[in-house]
Amino acid sequence: MDWLFTFPQIDPAHLLSVKRFIDGSLKALTRSYGTAIEDFFYPLQRVLIFFEKMMTGAPWLVVIAVMAGFAWLASRRWQVAVGVIVTLAMIGLLGLWKDAMTTISLVFTATIFSIAIGIPLGIAMNRYSRVGKAMQAILDVMQTMPPFVYLIPVVMLLGIGRVPGFIAVVIYSVPPIIRLTDLGIRLVDKEVLEAADAFGCSSSQKLWKVQMPLAIPTIMAGINQTIMMALGMVVIASMIGVQGLGLNVLQAIANQYFTQGIFSGFAIVGIAIIFDRTSQAYGNRLQKHRGASHD
């Protein structure tokens, strides 16, 4: 009856040799191409450092003014701008200004990259049904994968530091924008598309003059999701060397610094609220003329 209680697993010796082989070849790969990979990502590192320096190096008054102004431009509501000022001031008062700026710069850059990667992929997904099906499967896997798993391959290839952390954040946060770009284009009214055809639109005219403008509110919802996921991942990515508020949380867990953890946690929530309100208000403003028509 023994066989019933121990699963008939593959011979451990075999498994071990397989693991050794894979790990060994991966190590060999990084050893021989490590510098090439690093060189390849060097421009990215420069970009990340540039944004981080810009945020942490700028006078705090300027940062607050710019962010509040940005929030107002996006939402056209003074409440949102005031909310931004109050939140940033609180973070500063708690002594978390520098860390918060690092986190904001990382989330900001990650969002820009996600948009740049995600929108073209979403369009491709919509246009070519094969790409769509393949992408659907990939996205399903990506979105069910525990976020920690994303850290493994990047750490293997790039080691610990700013760039691998950033890549993990982008990979983790890009799915919603891909999905919602595709969805937004699919939701465009059939009659409007027929009208575009009837007026002789080429397929690129149809995409840029009709489908994309009408998909923008949905795409904005995707961007909002992407920002939120990037913020969440920033904390996890602190494990592989990302600086900022996430690192504070990690240290607090490791050393049982209760207050430091709570303060940093609140700072992250504050930043999340700022980004969320601003991007949502912008999305709603775009939707002003696109509501259901009244007959």
Binding site: D189, E191, V192, E194, A195, D197, A198, F199, G200, C201, S202, K209, V210, P213, L214, I216, H289, R290, S293
Partner: peptide, 21 residues
């Protein structure tokens, strides 16, 4: 055909099919 649709015919739709944006 595209050229024909652009300059040969024009269409008006039951539910207007205007571009809301």
């Amino acid at each position: 055909q595209r050229e024909f649709r652009r300059s040969g015919t024009a269409m008006v739709f039951q539910r207007f099919a205007l571009l809301p944006h």
